[in-house]
Design a protein around this nucleic acid. Structure first.
Lengths: 246, 246
DNA sequence: TATTTTATTGTACAAATGTATAAATTAAAA
DNA sequence: TTTTAATTTATACATTTGTACAATAAAATA
């Protein structure tokens, strides 16, 4: 037993996190560079390393090196590691939240006194994330991978709660209005399934390609959006039908 | 910006991983205890800590302490940390695989020359995992949390591939037979969504309860199985309908 | 019974890590 | 212009961590 398969070693032999040399500079406040640029570079590097190595696995030294910054600059700008992590998540969560709430507001307007179609709710919640991760921007791709990684971890759940639960509740409230008679627990279960599928799609682990007979045919997240919306919408509607039959 | 919410601290102040005292014993091979018991205790403890703290976050010392074993016993029985991790995953994956393949074989027999109903495929793949995690056994509950955590991480994806992709391919093949005309990429996307929802449900992060108006009403994984099957089945069928309309 | 193997305990260590301190230099404010 | 605040370099340190080595005693084998 415990026979170690041949590719175990490669699985664990992760990226040697690029010990890039920090260019030698004079100490003291630099001439041109604004601190915002430095902060952004650090956040970008932290985002990447947290996504690749996890919270515990990412070393602040590697973050600093990847950001072309001295170690202490990280602590100076963001405080302890925990705060850096929280800031990384927060930076893009505010954008995501804004997009989602704006879409929800528009859908409410369009629906007037009626309820919003399920397909609209699904699409409005999912598409900001999927399109951000699916279009070229490597920052958003990394962020999506990080969020997927956070999804089922204890620490990640706390952070997600802090930054995303408010919006989730706003959507859930409309889902319930659009699914009259369906028990709250079922709506939440559907919502959770939808979020899990969204994160899994955008985490971009390469598993779909590995499972496919023709890996070249597997599209990226953005191209899969319509399929995802269709799938999840049908799931919600099936809950409605099941409750009608009772 | 970066205002630190009041509950950030509690989020990161994880469990001080129980530095239980290892009882003083004589060195040398112990009298009654079989090495299998020791191995099982170590695996149980590792399972718990990997699930709670992640691969990087779990320290072998804490594993040893939780297993009531000296540090070196861990390395002696399982080799380096990577191998321990792999063994933890492997131990229950063989059971899960057996259950799933047996169910698939039975479904094939029942279907004869026809194709297996989607609802059957969904249920047969999902239920061994959900029921194992949902029934009381704390070992399986922990394992489910660990697998959820692995799902979207680079390392986790490699390990899952090694232990679960073969079974996944067997099911995917039947899904495709039961969904004629649906592009392979769509079937895989649906399968991925189903797995993500299954893992999210069983990871048991407490998010559903936190999102609910009446947290007491949110059932456990086992009670949610039927809802999950209904939701995912409808999703697959919607892919079929969409391809028929074209 | 004599010898080898197995399964422990106990100690040690080099590498890595988060955090803190000191010094230097520029920008901004008074 | 003088003073204060901001941002960086450079170094240090106590912990933690994975792994290795040495010793011991029970079990298995010859």
């Amino acid at each position: 037993m415990t026979d170690t398969p041949p590719d175990l070693e490669t699985a664990f032999a992760a990226t040697p996190p690029s010990p890039q040399r920090v260019p030698r500079r004079k100490p003291g406040r630099p001439k041109g560079i604004s601190s915002e640029q430095t902060r952004a570079r650090i956040l970008d590097a932290a985002e990447r390393l947290f996504a690749d190595e996890g919270y515990e696995g990412a070393a602040l030294r590697d973050v600093a090196a990847a950001a072309q910054v001295q170690l202490h600059a990280v602590g100076y700008h963001f405080g302890p590691k925990e705060a850096l992590f929280d800031t990384v998540v927060a930076r893009r969560s505010v954008i995501m939240t804004e997009l989602r709430l704006a879409a929800l507001e528009a859908a409410k307007q369009a629906a007037g006194s009626g309820s919003i179609p399920i397909a609209t709710l699904v699409r409005d919640y999912i598409s900001p994330f999927v399109l951000s991760a699916g279009r070229g921007d490597p920052g958003w791709r990394t962020y999506a991978a990080l969020m997927g990684r956070l999804a089922n971890s204890p620490l990640g759940t706390e952070i997600i709660a802090r930054h995303y639960d408010s919006t989730a509740r706003a959507y859930l409230s409309e889902f319930r209005r659009s699914l009259p008679g369906v028990p709250e627990a079922d709506v939440i279960e559907g919502f959770s399934a939808m979020v899990a599928a969204m994160l899994g799609l955008c985490a971009d682990t390469g598993r779909p390609a590995r499972l496919a007979d023709e890996p070249g045919e597997v599209p990226g997240p953005a191209e899969s959006l319509d399929t995802l919306v269709r799938f999840q919408t049908a799931g919600f509607l099936a809950l409605q039908e099941a409750s009608d039959d009772r």
